[in-house]
């Protein structure tokens, strides 16, 4: 993956920025999110979490299966505030 490739479209984060975060010592997707904002957008990291896992595996030499998935936090999908406010 070239450094210019956009990994997270919502927040416009490139592969190069994710690689720089990994080289600064981040070792999990949760940590990459905090440093780069990748995965912090409206889609909740649905596409970019997989790409971040791939970059982590490539940079660290860890098997892809060893990369922990990001922690799921409610809501599962984006919900308009007004709809949430009316829930019983």
């Amino acid at each position: 993956m070239d450094d210019e490739v956009i990994v997270c479209r919502c927040e416009e984060v490139t592969a190069g920025e994710v690689r720089a975060a990994i080289r600064a010592g981040t070792r999990t997707i949760a940590a990459i999110k905090k440093r780069t904002r990748a995965g912090m957008g409206l889609c909740g990291g649905r596409t970019c979490a997989r790409l971040m896992a791939r970059l982590l595996a490539e940079e660290t030499g860890l098997p892809a299966a060893a990369v922990a998935p990001p922690r799921a936090r409610p809501p599962v999908r984006p919900v308009p505030a007004a709809a949430l406010a009316e829930e019983d």
Binding site: M40, G41, L42, G44, R73, P74, P75, P78, V79, P80, A81, A82, L84, A85
Partner: peptide, 17 residues
């Protein structure tokens, strides 16, 4: 949020902690 910032009523809540 909806009560104090009604313009944000259709804004999506995307995560929580």
């Amino acid at each position: 949020l909806v009560r104090r910032l009604p313009v944000a009523r259709s804004a999506s809540i995307i995560r929580s902690w």
